[in-house]
């Protein structure tokens, strides 16, 4: 059974009298451990797909099973729990809380988690993850005191703290320079190597090349789905 199993997903936005079919009958299966790039021009429906994949939104029609559980008809609270425990998010603009330390940003999902955990445990776990993304010594820095690449590492650490099986990244390198982009993509590659399922939205081909499989959207439909010719050029830089 695939980890992500979407069948005949339709998403319609009503704007005035017109309705926009942002997604028009999407069938998508993603196995555990895949590294998927979702490509397509703006307005093609890839962001809508991301919101549904991330349980931030519900499809108008169709079913979406995550790890065998139908999440497409869940209530807002149930979806909040799924987002907390099963999914990790990374955004183009990082979406870190300002005036809040890296450590506290990373801890954030644990505050809303279901498993009992003391403040001390939370701290320890956050430190460990910060170490994993290579930000030792920056625990007390606020986002304003960090570079873009460092902020994105904090965001990745936050996505990892509840140890979710799926990491969703929406244009994660869109605000980063080329060098830093490669570093960040290196982290995603490593996570994928460690067994995480990574799904990245991007419109840049050289970013998509880090993935193993690419799905291309146009006008709410999948127009292309196949393996990526892999270059994995950052692997040496980040052993």
């Amino acid at each position: 059974m695939p980890l992500v199993d979407m069948q005949k997903i339709v998403k319609i936005y009503a704007s005035g009298e017109n309705e926009v079919r942002a997604l028009d009958g999407i069938d998508l299966a993603i196995e555990a451990g895949e590294f998927l790039a979702v490509m397509g021009p703006s307005g093609s429906g890839k962001s809508t797909l991301m919101n549904i994949l991330g349980c931030l939104d519900r499809p108008t029609e169709g079913t979406y099973r995550l790890d065998g559980v139908d999440v497409s008809r869940m209530s807002a609270n149930q979806r909040a729990e799924i987002r907390n425990s099963r999914l990790g998010f990374v955004y183009q603009n990082f979406n870190l809380l300002s005036r809040t330390t890296a450590l506290e940003n990373v801890e954030l999902p644990l505050i809303y988690g279901q498993a009992p955990m003391s403040v001390r445990e939370r701290r320890a776990r956050a430190r460990e993850i910060i170490h994993r993304v290579g930000l030792d010594g920056r625990e007390k820095h606020t986002p304003a005191q960090l570079s873009g690449g460092q902020q994105q590492r904090v965001a990745i650490a936050r996505a990892l703290i509840t140890d979710p099986p799926v990491i969703l990244a929406d244009e994660p390198t869109g605000n980063l320079d080329t060098r830093t982009s490669q570093d960040v993509m290196g982290i995603f590659e490593r996570l994928n190597d460690e067994g995480k399922t990574v799904i990245i939205i991007t419109h840049e081909h050289d970013i998509a090349e880090h993935a193993r499989r690419a799905v291309t959207f146009r006008d709410g439909k999948i127009v292309q789905d196949g393996p990526v010719e892999r270059r994995r050029r950052t692997q040496e830089a980040h052993p």
């Binding site: 991330g54 931030l56 807002a76 609270n77 909040a80 729990e81 987002r83 907390n84 425990s85 998010f89 979406n95 870190l96 809380l97 300002s98 954030l108 999902p109 505050i111 809303y112 988690g113 936050r158 509840t162």
Partner: peptide, 16 residues
Amino acid sequence: TREIGVRMAVGAKGRD
């Protein structure tokens, strides 16, 4: 608003 969005995205419920 954005902070609220971030909190909700990582699992905060309405009541939180």
